[in-house]
């Protein structure tokens, strides 16, 4: 560079870089498909919370008597409620599958000295999930 200072012989100059620090956009999570997937996974926690609050409302209605329960089940039959529950179900299944998907990374299960491969753990979890779901479903329907 023409404007660079002259350095005389014997003088030592330490290079001081002018470091450029790029700023992260608040929309960083749309940059990559994996990040979008991640954010959706994280937002399923909102559905988890919303649904257990709805469960609290169900328990409350049930404890208040047949009329309150009837009013709630009438609301459940509205198209809005059914649509909402379908959205909830899709996101909750997403939560379930992503949860099973990452579970083997946190836990190393051994049989003897051999590590059980992650894919077997995932399959086992899914099988257990289906069995538990059937059991709970049977309990609710058969009473």
């Amino acid at each position: 560079m023409s404007n660079a200072p002259k350095i005389s012989a014997g003088e030592r100059v330490r290079y001081k870089p002018q470091i450029y620090m790029p700023q992260m956009s608040i929309f960083w999570w749309v940059k990559d498909r994996a990040y979008v997937f991640f954010i959706i996974r994280e937002l399923t926690s909102l559905v988890v919370a919303a649904y257990v609050i709805l469960m609290m409302i169900q328990i409350n209605a049930l404890s208040q008597g047949p009329e309150a329960w009837q009013a709630l089940t009438d609301w459940f039959a509205t198209p809005f409620s059914i649509g909402l529950h379908i959205v909830f179900l899709i996101l909750l299944i997403f939560h379930t599958l992503t949860w099973f998907w990452v579970a083997p990374t946190a836990m190393v299960v051994r049989i003897g000295s051999k590590k059980v491969p992650g894919s077997i753990l995932i399959a086992g979890n899914i099988a257990m999930w289906l069995i538990i779901s059937l059991a709970i479903g049977w309990l609710i329907v058969s009473i």
């Binding site: 994996a34 991640f38 990374t105 946190a106 836990m107």
Partner: peptide
């Protein structure tokens, strides 16, 4: 996020290491 393990050229699986 899990992307660390996806891009790792040596299959170190840092995400798994952190989870454990």
């Amino acid at each position: 996020v899990g992307e660390c393990s996806e891009v790792c050229p040596k299959a170190v699986d840092p995400a798994g290491a952190i989870q454990r």
